[in-house]
């Protein structure tokens, strides 16, 4: 548990972080919007589980990146946009934490409760919407292939590739000096 906390608490290594501002200039929002909508077409139940909260705007803020996202997870009407850090106030829900922790949350490899209670991710605004999101993701058993809309052997390859990459990034992050200010 403590070891997980350390890994999850770690920020991206500096060289990765230096690369990141460039992402903001990419048309990341439209691409993510499309993949989320594709997911909704294939797995509508994931979004039904969100109930009324699917129309909420979630502000997802990876603290180690220079930008954030806003997400409205409304199934086939889902909307993802890249946002400036200062735009949190426009959203009813804010989820903030290191990118790797947020990704671990999404693929279900780490439990959101543990990340939150260990103060690795922070939440603000409508707590019930965060709980709904966490429970929906919990049940969804998402894989990276779900987001890019692949099936069969290709999907398994994609999963292995992306998850392998994530794992490597986590290992890199864990090896980097732990963030100051927190002694687990």
């Amino acid at each position: 548990m403590v070891a997980h906390a350390q890994t999850m608490n770690a920020e991206l290594p500096a060289f990765v972080r230096r690369l990141s501002p460039a992402f903001a200039a990419l048309p990341l929002g439209p691409a993510l919007t499309l993949s989320l909508r594709a997911l909704a077409r294939r797995r509508p139940a994931v979004f039904e589980r969100l109930g009324e909260f699917r129309r909420e705007r979630y502000f997802i803020d990876p603290v180690d990146l220079g930008f954030a996202f806003t997400v409205v997870p409304d199934g086939e009407r889902a909307q993802v946009s890249v946002a400036r850090k200062g735009e949190a106030a426009t959203c009813a829900i804010v989820i903030r934490g290191p990118l790797l922790a947020l990704l671990a949350l999404l693929d279900g490899s780490r439990d959101g409760d543990a990340l939150f209670f260990n103060r690795i991710i922070a939440i603000g605004g409508r707590t019930e919407a965060v709980v709904a999101l966490r429970n929906a993701i919990e049940d969804a058993e998402l894989t990276p292939a779900d987001f890019v809309g692949l099936d069969g052997p290709l999907a398994r390859l994609a999963d292995a590739g992306v998850l392998g990459g994530l794992d490597m990034a986590r290992r890199l992050a864990a090896a980097a000096p732990a963030r100051a200010g927190r002694e687990p």
Binding site: E48, E128, V131, R134, N135
Partner: peptide
């Protein structure tokens, strides 16, 4: 009865 939890009848 928490948001996002529990079963529909088909589930």
């Amino acid at each position: 009865n928490f948001p996002g939890l529990n079963f529909s009848v088909p589930e």
